[in-house]
Structure formats: structure tokens, C-alpha cells
Design a protein around this nucleic acid. Structure first.
Length: 814
RNA sequence: GCCCGGGUGGCGGAAUUGGUAGACGCUACGGACUUAAAAUCCGUUGAUUGAAAAAUCGUGCCGGUUCGAGUCCGGCCUCGGGCACCA
């Protein structure tokens, strides 16, 4: 008699067991080897989407596998609970963001539990709770006193109708997403964290992150963008202040034919005062988008300012332009243009009939035509007076010395990385703990007045932050002088919360200190898994925060994440699934229909973790069918009763045993080293197929099947834990599968007498031959040449050479 | 525009260090079982040629290195991610 596979019931029983036994709650145990296994925590958007299921399942598989390896595994879960969607929902439905968020969290927590993830729920962290964000407010005030946070003006997207600051994604074709008004660039004062102070360490430490993908490290290196160059000053006619520029190519200095400043540059502002054309141009630049991608792709425009700088070597006048592609926030807001040796300068010069001068020639003496394109390579200087003939390094040094001698320039290092602007003019975020006093300026909220609690019962309209309309929030007194003062109403960028939550999981209940001794036990995270879209910002900010925490004496770890796995996106219709695009797929339907194990299995079988995965409803059936086959195969095998331990003897029995141990070896490598869960699933499917085909109910045959099925249960336990929990007991085991050890490969079972060798002639496959596993090279070649089909292709030809790849192939070259 | 990835049958993917291209699964088709359907089981499934044995072509495009290239090199095309206020 067979029992039906009913995933709903099977999974309920497994979950009840794990809950009852508190299987996944861990405490610090110095005698055990810890393994901290973490995914990027989710934003509580309402329901889980396929991207969540993918990343959480990947991480759960690793956590459960490591546990079977005997590690003491911590896998926590929490909520990145502040953010824009809650405000958008509030505008749309009139529900306060807090209420909406907590409701979503409750629903999504149940979904996660239904999926059977091995989380230690006792450590749950929710970033919108004061007991969490108070500590980042506290850290902020410490950094403020240390000088690592400061205030300066920065450009934002301003919606003049809604009277509010817009995120880049809320600007659509230059217009506000709700008001449809033309968006303006506006400068407002904002708080910044000095990430640039750690630029070199963030860059250098990448070399030690062996457990990170090269692609992510490369992206971060390029993002930091360290470049060595010279900062030098040009005297501007009739101006007191010289114009300072940074260049990595001082060797091209004699090729400077014009200079350009940003629209926001003081020189441009000054000229605009008496020049309506320039004023209009600057005004036009104000309506452009704040995002760099937009700046880089828009048409390069500029106007001559009508004033000139003096070339510091030749003494010639160099015309000054204002241009929309020069960024005020990068470098000095001014550039020297060398159209002969910079492609963008070249194109701009062509368009505006500015002279193009060649000052570099190729070192190999080849001819170039500067009128066709800019020559970008390093070479030898020409048309540069006494610098002619120098190479790049010599010219760099000569020019650096010349400027350093008279104090008008210096060698310096420039970074593409900018300081991190953390102010947001939004309500649903951590209040920035600053008080503004007319006499004392900006004052940090004293420690004993923290946290600054965000009021949760508010109405959000979409026109500015509700905090600005709440005197009961912003009216306060100066902690310094006691006079009436005003609280900061801006909140933190939500990346602040996600930059240290992984440490807080170690001690989420501590209301005395930010981090305690438990942090030292668990940190750093051994395995961090998350989307590739976070390759730069979140991961770089988290690395930065780790260094801040270390330098505050709160942690001893230099880096937060030892090993990083970046999973690809789940795409729908070729695009990233996102709340904004509304192309999400709700996995709940699939869970209801097939159970969590089927969904987990399908996600793992469909693609390797690092690749993006185009979502399709097909294929889930296959995963479900496999689990049913697995269930019935075990059921059928167990029905006759106890299995005796009898050694395999027939060829078929030995073959199945070999397949079993080949599979153990393969899956161990796939999960433990390669993180290729799709091929691990395929291998166990092959093994089950072999079990199903194996037709031998003799005592020895049943013993071999018992071993094969037990192996499948153990190998699949991390991926489909519920069904394995039940089948493990059915196979006669009393204890929990969770404490079972990962299976070991029996090398003796892998031994084969005969192996297959491929025979090629001139690299083309012509035959497969069977040879003794211990046959020597000559014997294999002899057998290869003796094959009839091989003979057809080498007949009447001279064998020039024979290549033998031991155990694999022979290639006969004729 | 710049940086980082990807492109293999009808589809998702496999091929781990330059050595059998298409494992495993899905779909489709054929068959078994059934009064019937569902479920399940068995078989076929890159293209072309062939009765078969087998042969030729084939991993986005063009070229190169090699006895041998999906894999390495050069140049393109195309799709995806990131570009600092989506998370």
C-alpha cells in the first residue's frame, strides 16, 4: 500500500518539529566553529517575490549544508523597513507608513516561515524600530564630534509643484512623476559622511577579499576611481582667484586650447550677472537631471564666457567656456581641455571650431592624424618646447616639479568616489539627530536624549515631509545654551540602516550598547548572499561602516563579509522584477499548489545562482513530479520492511553503488565548493532515475537501494528539507535529519575495471572504445588505431602524431 | 556615455583546468494503462543527408592561436545590472 505525497501535511509536520525543538536558535559557543550565513534583508514591500525566494533559498541551502558539516550556524532574518514605497502607499491609500510596514512584515514573516527557512527568529531586527535606529543616531553623533560628518550644499531634483525633493527614479523624462512639472536642480544643505577619508583603505582591502567575485571587486575599484595626477592653477585675466584644475595627463599641458567650468561654478555665475546668454544657459542647465547617467548621455553643450585664462607655461590666452558636462561635484568643477588627446574634448572642439593641437606622438614612431580622432595613448611629447622628447613619466615629473617650485600646483590623488550624502527630505526614515540653534549652529542631540523618535501617526500627502508640519516634533531647545531651537527634519538615507544590521543580529536585544561581546563571536559574516544590483552602493557603504565601527572600538573586524555570493536577478519579460515596474510574480500561488519544497527545488534547479533567471511558470511541474517520484520510490522500497546490511555483489548492484558514490562526490563539490545547486539537483535526479530502473529486491539489492535513497535524502536535505525530514524517518532513522552528518564518498565503490576513451582523428570524434582502467598509453593507442571507423579515416595516411589525454581521449593527427 | 556581466536545441540550462557540445529538466510527439479523462509509466526529440552504419554542419557575428576552442586572444553586435535620492 502506498501513501500519497501531500506536501501541505508533510511540510506542516516538519515545521512543527523544528519550532517545537527550537532547532534554529543559536547561542554563542566558543567550543564550536561558528558559521554566520546571511542574506541581504528584504524591504517589506507587501509580499515575497521570486527574487526573495531565490536568494533566501540559496542562503538556506548553504546554511543547512554547513550545519551538516558540523558548523555552528547562525542564519538570522530582519527587515529593511524604512523607505519610499511606504510613503507612496501612504499617499495612495491614506495609511500611515508605519502601519503599512508592520502589516507587511507580519504577512511576509509568515510567508518566510511557510518556506521552511532555518532562521533564528529570536534575533529578528526591524530597522524602523527606535531600539534599532537609536544606535545609528548615536553613532552619527559620535562621528559628528570626530569630524567624519559635515554639512555642505548638494544638488537635488526639485519638484516646484509638489514642493518636494524627488528621487532619480521619480523623475520621468525630466518631469515629476506625480505633478508632471519640469524638475529643477536645486542646491540645498545636506549632511555628508566622509567615506573619502577611507577611500584608500576601501580600495586596498579589496585585494584581500579572496571570497568575493572579481567582477564586484573590479566594479568597486572603478567606482572609487583612484587616479594620480597634478592639481594646477591657471591665472584668470582680471580675476583675483586662480582657476584650479586636476589632470591625470600633465604631459598634454601644452595641448590645452580651452578650459571649461561647470554651470554652478562661481566664475560662470559672475559672468552671468552681466551676460543674459550665459544666464540663460545656466538656467537651462538647471532643468537637467541630477543623475550621472543623464549627464553623460545628454548633448554636450557649452558657451564661451568671454574671458581667458593664462597658460602657465606658454603665457598664451586660453578661452574659458561654461559647459553642461563639467560636474561641480567632481574635482574642482573646472577642467582643462586637450582636444588632441581626449575624445570628449576633441568632439567639443570640433563642434565649436576650437583649435586641436597635437602634443603627443606614438612612441613606436607610427603616424597619427589628429584631425581624424584624438590620440589617447601615452607617447612622446612634441610641440611642447623644452619638454619635447620626454615620455609620459618624465613629462609628468618635469611638470610637477615646475608647478611645485612656484607653488601653483602639486602632485595629488583624486578619487571618483564622492562623500556620501545621507540627508533625505523624507518622512519615513531615521531622524537625523541634530538640533539647529541660532547661536550654536548645528548641535548633535546629546546621548541621554536619544533616540529621536519618529512620530508614527501621521498623514502623508506627497508634498514635503510631514515632519516639517509638526511643531511638536521640531520645536525643541538647544542642548548647548537652552534657547529655543529647531530639530532637523531630514532623515537618513536608508542605506545607513542596511550598513550595519548584520552586526546587530549578534545582539539585537541589548539596550545598553550598540554592539556587545557577541558581535566578536559572530562577525564577520562568513557567507553573504544578495543581488548583484547591490555590488557597489550597499556593499561599499557596509564596508565603510565596518571600518567606522572598528575605529570606534565597537568591532575588531576590518571587513564585514568574508565570502560574497551575488545572485542574478529573477527577470520577468526580460526586465528586473521590481515594485516600480509592477512585473512581480507572487510565489504564494505556487506554494499553495505544490508546497514549499517544490518551489525551493525549482528555484535551485532552474539556473546557477550567479546567472540571471528569466522567470517562467513551466518547469515547476517537473520539480513536483520529481518529489512525487522520490516519495513513491522510498515508500515502495520501505514497504517490505527491514533492510539487512548485505554487501553488493552483482554488476548491477555494484553499478548502482558506484552511481550513489559518484553522486555524493559530485553534489558535495557542487554545493560545498562551486555553489552550483542546479547541477547538484540534476545529479540527484540521475541517481533517483537509476534507483527507479534498478529491479532487484534481493536482500543485497535492497541494501544497495537503501544506501542510494538515504544518500538522496541527505544530499537533498538542504534544498527540500521538509520531504527529507519525513523520508529520513521512513528509512528507519529516529533522530532528526538536522543532526545527521553529510554523507562521505566511499572511494572503493568508485573503482571501475573498464573505462570509455574517445578517439579523434584530426580533432574530430570518430570512435569510443572501452579499455581497461589500468591500460598503459601504448595499449590505449593500439586499441584506438585498431577501431574500424578510425581505420577508415587514417587509411593510406601517415600518422604524424598521437595525443593522449589519460583517461579521456586519443587524438590521431594525420 | 562610462563600469560590470551574459548570449549554447522549441525552452531553462550542462560541459568544473583548452579535450566526447546539448547532462538534467520542461515542452512537443508517439505508445502503455483507463469506459474516458487526469495522474503515472515507456519511447523519440539540434539541423541536414542516409534503409542503416555513419557523414556534414552547428555554442551571437567576423578574424586569430592550437593536434583540438562553447572555453584563450583581437574586433564587433545584442541583452541585462550599476551610475551615488528605488531597494
Amino acid at each position: 500500500m502506498t501513501t500519497k505525497y501531500e506536501p501541505e501535511k508533510v511540510e506542516q509536520r516538519a515545521r512543527d518539529y523544528w519550532d517545537r525543538e527550537r532547532c534554529f536558535e543559536v547561542t554563542e559557543d566558543p567550543d564550536k566553529e561558528k558559521f554566520y550565513c546571511l542574506t541581504m534583508f528584504p524591504y517589506p514591500s507587501g509580499q515575497l517575490h521570486m527574487g526573495h525566494v531565490r536568494v533566501f533559498t540559496i542562503n538556506d541551502v548553504i546554511a543547512r549544508y554547513q550545519r551538516m558539516q558540523g558548523k555552528h550556524v547562525l542564519q538570522p532574518m530582519g527587515w529593511d523597513a524604512f523607505g519610499m514605497p511606504a510613503e507612496n502607499a501612504a499617499i495612495k491609500h491614506g495609511v500611515p507608513p508605519a502601519e503599512w510596514t508592520y502589516k507587511n512584515i507580519d504577512y511576509m514573516r509568515e510567508q518566510l516561515k511557510r518556506l521552511g527557512y532555518a532562521y533564528d527568529w529570536s534575533r529578528e531586527v526591524t530597522t524602523c524600530r527606535p531600539e534599532y535606529y537609536r544606535w545609528e543616531q548615536w553613532l552619527f553623533t559620535r562621528l559628528f564630534k570626530k569630524g567624519l560628518v559635515y554639512r555642505k550644499n548638494a544638488i537635488v531634483n526639485w519638484d516646484p509643484v509638489d514642493q518636494t525633493v524627488l528621487a532619480n527614479e521619480q523623475v520621468i523624462d525630466g518631469r515629476g512623476w506625480r505633478s508632471d512639472a519640469l524638475v529643477e536642480r536645486r542646491e540645498i544643505p545636506q549632511w555628508f559622511m566622509k567615506i573619502t577619508a577611507y577611500a584608500d583603505e576601501l580600495l586596498d582591502n579589496l585585494d584581500n577579499l579572496d571570497g568575493w567575485p572579481d567582477s564586484v571587486k573590479t566594479m568597486q575599484r572603478n567606482w572609487i576611481g583612484r587616479s594620480e595626477g597634478i592639481e594646477l592653477s591657471f591665472i584668470v585675466e582680471d580675476e583675483e582667484e586662480p582657476l584650479t584644475v586636476f589632470t591625470t595627463r600633465p604631459d598634454t599641458l601644452m595641448g590645452v586650447t580651452y578650459m571649461a567650468v561647470a554651470a554652478e561654478h562661481p566664475l560662470a555665475t559672475k559672468v552671468a550677472a552681466n551676460n543674459p546668454d550665459i544666464a540663460a544657459f545656466i538656467e537651462e542647465c538647471k532643468t537637467s537631471h541630477a543623475a550621472e547617467a543623464m549627464m553623460e548621455t545628454m548633448e554636450k553643450k557649452g558657451l564661451p564666457l568671454g574671458i581667458s585664462a593664462i597658460h602657465p607655461i606658454s603665457g598664451e590666452a586660453v578661452p574659458l567656456w561654461v559647459a553642461n558636462f563639467v560636474l561641480m561635484s567632481y574635482g574642482t568643477g573646472a577642467v582643462m581641455a586637450v582636444p588632441g588627446h581626449d575624445q570628449r574634448d576633441w568632439e567639443f572642439a570640433r563642434k565649436h571650431d576650437l583649435p586641436v593641437t597635437q602634443v603627443i606622438r606614438p612612441a613606436d614612431g607610427s603616424e597619427i592624424d589628429i584631425s581624424e580622432a584624438a590620440y589617447l595613448e601615452h607617447g612622446v611629447l612634441v610641440n611642447s618646447g623644452d619638454l619635447d622628447g620626454l615620455d609620459f613619466t618624465q613629462a609628468f615629473d618635469a611638470i610637477a616639479q615646475r608647478f611645485e617650485a612656484d607653488g601653483s600646483g602639486r602632485r595629488t590623488v583624486n578619487y571618483r568616489l564622492r562623500d556620501w550624502g545621507i540627508s533625505r527630505q523624507r518622512y519615513w526614515g531615521t531622524p537625523i539627530p541634530i538640533i539647529y540653534c541660532d547661536d550654536c549652529d548645528a548641535v548633535a542631540v546629546p546621548e541621554d536624549q536619544l533616540p529621536v523618535v519618529l512620530p508614527e501617526n501621521v498623514t502623508v500627502t506627497g508634498e514635503g515631509s510631514p515632519l516639517k508640519r509638526m511643531p511638536e516634533f521640531y520645536e525643541t531647545t538647544c542642548p548647548n545654551c537652552g534657547k529655543p531651537a529647531r530639530r532637523e527634519t531630514d532623515t537618513f538615507d536608508t542605506f545607513v540602516e542596511s550598513s550595519w544590521y548584520f552586526s546587530r543580529y549578534a545582539c539585537p536585544d541589548n539596550d545598553e550598547v550598540m554592539l556587545d561581546a557577541r558581535e566578536a563571536y559572530w562577525m564577520p559574516v562568513d557567507q553573504y548572499t544578495g543581488g548583484i544590483e547591490h555590488a557597489i552602493l550597499h556593499l561599499l557603504y557596509s564596508r565603510f561602516f565596518q571600518k567606522l565601527l572598528r575605529d570606534e572600538g565597537l568591532s575588531s573586524a576590518d571587513e564585514p563579509f568574508t565570502n560574497l555570493l551575488t545572485q542574478g536577478m529573477v527577470l520577468k519579460d526580460g526586465a528586473k522584477m521590481s515594485k516600480a515596474k509592477g512585473n512581480t510574480v507572487d510565489p504564494q500561488d505556487l506554494i499553495n499548489k505544490y508546497g514549499a519544497d517544490t518551489v525551493r527545488l525549482f528555484m535551485m534547479a532552474a539556473a546557477p545562482p550567479e546567472q540571471s533567471l528569466e522567470w517562467s511558470d513551466d518547469g515547476v511541474q517537473g520539480a513536483y513530479r520529481f518529489l512525487k517520484r522520490f516519495w513513491y520510490a522510498t515508500d515502495r522500497h520501505c514497504a517490505p520492511g527491514t533492510v539487512e546490511d548485505i554487501a553488493a555483489s552483482t554488476d548491477a548492484q555494484l553499478n548502482l553503488r558506484r552511481k550513489t558514490h559518484q553522486t555524493i562526490a559530485k553534489v558535495s563539490d557542487d554545493i560545498g565548493r562551486r555553489y552550483k545547486f542546479n547541477t547538484a539537483v540534476a545529479a540527484t535526479m540521475e541517481l533517483l532515475n537509476a534507483v527507479t530502473r534498478f529491479d532487484d529486491t534481493s536482500p543485497a539489492g535492497r541494501a544497495v537501494v537503501q544506501e542510494a535513497l538515504e544518500s538522496i535524502v541527505l544530499l537533498l536535505a538542504p534544498i527540500v528539507p521538509h520531504i527529507c525530514h519525513e523520508l529520513w524517518q521512513q528509512l528507519g532513522h529516529d533522530g532528526s535529519l538536522l543532526v545527521a552528518a553529510w554523507p562521505a564518498t566511499d572511494e572503493a565503490a568508485l573503482v571501475q575495471d573498464m573505462i570509455e576513451i574517445v578517439v579523434q582523428v584530426n580533432g574530430k570524434l570518430r570512435a569510443r572504445i572501452s579499455v581497461a582502467a589500468d591500460a598503459d598509453a601504448e595499449e590505449v593507442k593500439k586499441l584506438a588505431l585498431a577501431d574500424l571507423n578510425v581505420q577508415r579515416f587514417i587509411a593510406n595516411k601517415v600518422i604524424r602524431k598521437t595525443i593522449l589525454v589519460p583517461g579521456r581521449l586519443v587524438n590521431v593527427v594525420v
